[in-house]
């Protein structure tokens, strides 16, 4: 009986997932990080405004902080970083999607991945507002790597 209830619970939980939701992973995520309203986490694109300049800031941060390494010269493709920003403007639960130039999943050099992730984590992601209060939201940004160099920031 317990097994049945557990299976139903797992099934409901799986069905209830929105596209792109990120669950807590104790191996990588900060256990102290909390969202303010777990019942409603927004998507960053729902909260942009006409005067939002975040993409300029993000591109500047990646371009100024990226340092190439000769060991990465054979690395090319797209690294997408998706994460959660809570209502206080704290970001966590970063997840990478690594794609080759033909958009097939691959694994990049571990140091290169760590470097990209470090830059993403160092950015002050802005708190966003909806209905006159700051809210939690998902966001993502991608970087294109060509022969180990940062060639483009896709956002």
């Amino acid at each position: 009986m317990r097994l049945v209830i557990l299976l139903i619970f797992i099934n409901v939980a799986a069905v209830a997932q929105n596209v792109g939701d990120i669950s807590f992973d104790p191996k990588t995520d900060d256990p102290k990080f909390q969202v303010c309203n777990p019942k409603q986490v927004w998507q960053g694109y729902q909260l942009k405004s006409k005067q939002d300049e975040t993409p300029i800031m993000v591109a500047r941060e990646f371009r100024s902080k990226f340092r190439s390494n000769p060991a990465w010269k054979n690395e090319s493709g797209l690294i997408r970083i998706r994460f959660l920003v809570n209502c206080s403007g704290v970001a966590d639960r970063f997840r990478l999607l690594e794609l080759d130039p033909d958009l097939k999943e691959k694994e990049f050099n571990a140091d290169l991945k760590a470097h990209i992730l470090g830059i993403a984590k160092s950015i002050s992601w802005p708190p966003r507002r909806a209905y006159n209060q700051t809210v939690d939201y998902y966001h993502h940004v991608s970087v294109r790597i060509v022969n180990g160099e940062l060639s483009d920031i896709v956002q």
Partner: peptide, 13 residues
């Protein structure tokens, strides 16, 4: 489109 919106590019494409 829904998957691309949310950066889930493999399923989106």
């Amino acid at each position: 489109q829904a998957y691309m919106f949310r950066g889930e590019f493999v399923e989106g494409m």
